Computed example of a mutant assay.
Amino acid sequence: MGFDLEGLTAAVEARGRVTRVVIADIRGSSPREVGAAMLVWKDGQSGTIGGGTLEFEAAIAARKQVQGTVLGSHALGPDLGQCCGGVVTLLSEVYDASRLAALDDEIVLRPVKTGADGATPLAVKRLLANARGQGLRPQPQLVDGWMVEPVHHPEVPLWIWGAGHVGRALVDVLSPLPDFSITWVDTAAERFPSDIPKGVTSVPAVDPALLVPHAPVKAQHLVLTYSHTLDLALCHSLLGHGFAFAGLIGSATKWARFRSRLAALGHSAEQISRITCPIGDPALGKHPQMIAVGVAAQLLRRDMAKEMKKDHSA
């Protein structure tokens, strides 16, 4: 996770002035990781730095903070009675429209510690240079009195085909997760709910299969329309286009029928096997929300395994 500039901008537009509290550093254990943040305003808040007394006390302090930057450490056990036992450094900053306008849209970099001046420290320059050299974004961290946070951009394109009960449950479960950029497709505008979650792009299309070529080849797809004919057309188009993951909702009987029909359309058994059916965890049952929970877990496990493989090969 990085600096949620979009979320902060929306909050400032709605509230006028917002205090952002972020975990800047950790020694020992902590309920959340460095970079986890919450937004606090006069009569509300969003996000979380881990809950418990730490979050409660930080929210109270944030509401009293009128301007500027506050950096402070908190011993979770001795000071706050939390069982994690580590020491957490919190950075609390007040934002309004003028301060937002000064932020970079790729890396938010600023001095936050007393005595840190306007000259970027050599350690920070090295960190940024190494990240660029490796083609990576730096992790959120406190370096020589400067806070370094890459602006968060959802990096996993996810296309959900179908806005029925299961499609809606999937969007409800997956849209709050920070890394998914969701495109939601169905055959008509009236098939979507009136309230589309933030960050989800709904696309009505009379023939959804014609949209497949517009999806990135690295996209993940969940196919669960109201029509087996449309599901088959989407699977056929996806196999011809390419994808990182494609999941189809259905029974073993449906998948056996689809495998036969996709083979007749010219796809090899190896190609067809790239489609996952059924999706989720059948043991959880067929309730839409349970299907959504199973599918979310499946996608997250897949992405975590991919990241671990990348780390081991680095």
Rank of each mutant, 00 (worst) to 15 (best):
E307I: 09
C277F: 08
H153A: 11
A123D: 11
L128R: 03
K113F: 02
R110H: 11
I60A: 12
H236R: 15
V124W: 08
G145W: 05
G72C: 06
I279W: 07
Y95E: 06
R259D: 04
R301M: 08
A305Q: 13
L76M: 03
W184Y: 07
E13L: 14
K125L: 14
T120G: 00
R15P: 01
V173M: 13
A205C: 13
L100I: 06
L284G: 01
R261V: 04
E149Q: 12
G28R: 12
A59W: 00
Q271T: 11
V87C: 01
E6N: 11
V151Q: 04
E33D: 15
W184V: 02
G85N: 08
A188T: 10
G135I: 09
A246Y: 00
L128T: 02
D231S: 10
G72V: 04
Q220P: 00
H152D: 11
I249Q: 07
G199D: 03
L8H: 04
G167T: 12
L238H: 06
A58I: 10
S237A: 15
P157R: 07
L234R: 11
L222D: 02
V21S: 05
G115W: 10
I291F: 05
E55M: 12
Q220E: 13
R99H: 08
A219H: 03
P121I: 08
E190W: 06
H241M: 08
A263H: 14
I279V: 15
D79C: 07
S194N: 11
G47K: 05
L76K: 05
M38G: 04
L90P: 01
Q289V: 10
G242E: 09
P154A: 13
A269I: 03
A37D: 12
G135R: 08
E270C: 02
F56A: 13
V124K: 05
A314L: 15
G250H: 10
V40L: 09
A219I: 04
F243M: 10
V87Y: 05
L239D: 01
A296W: 04
R110N: 03
L174T: 05
L76W: 07
N130W: 09
N130E: 15
Y95M: 06
L262P: 04
R63W: 08
F56T: 10
V212I: 10
R261A: 15
E155W: 02
V40F: 06
D281M: 13
V200R: 02
D281P: 00
A59H: 01
G68L: 07
A233E: 14
D281L: 14
R274I: 02
T89Q: 09
E57N: 11
V295S: 01
A252C: 00
T276D: 02
V217R: 15
T229H: 12
R15F: 09
V148Q: 07
I249M: 15
A163L: 13
G16E: 10
L90S: 00
